[in-house]
C-alpha cells in the first residue's frame, strides 16, 4: 500500500516508491541518496510531530513534514 513518508510510525521501515516536488528539492534528496528502492526508517519524531529524523543508507538526517510528504513509500 502506497503512503507518504510522513505517515509512517516511529521505527517503521518502508521502501521509497517515488519522490515528488520541484527539480531543486528532488535533486537535493537524490544527492542524499533518497532514491527509488531505498529503505527508509523513521528514527525520531519532533515534539510537535512536524519534523522527522530518518535513516537512509546507514546514516541519518532530519526532514520537515512538508518534505516528508513528498516522498511516497510502500
Amino acid at each position: 500500500m502506497e503512503k507518504k513518508l510522513s505517515d509512517l510510525k516511529k521505527n517503521e521501515i518502508a521502501i521509497i516508491k517515488k519522490v515528488e516536488g520541484d527539480s531543486h528539492l528532488k535533486r537535493r534528496l537524490f544527492e542524499l541518496g533518497m532514491l527509488v528502492g531505498e529503505e527508509v526508517q523513521i528514527l525520531s519524531i519532533s515534539p510537535l510531530k512536524n519534523s522527522f529524523i530518518i535513516s537512509l543508507k546507514g546514516y541519518c538526517f532530519a526532514v520537515r513534514r512538508d518534505v516528508a510528504k513528498k516522498i511516497l513509500v510502500v
Partner: peptide, 9 residues
C-alpha cells in the same frame, strides 16, 4: 517560503 529543511545529523 517553505524552506526545504533537510538537516544532517
Amino acid at each position: 517560503s517553505e524552506e526545504n529543511f533537510v538537516l544532517e545529523m
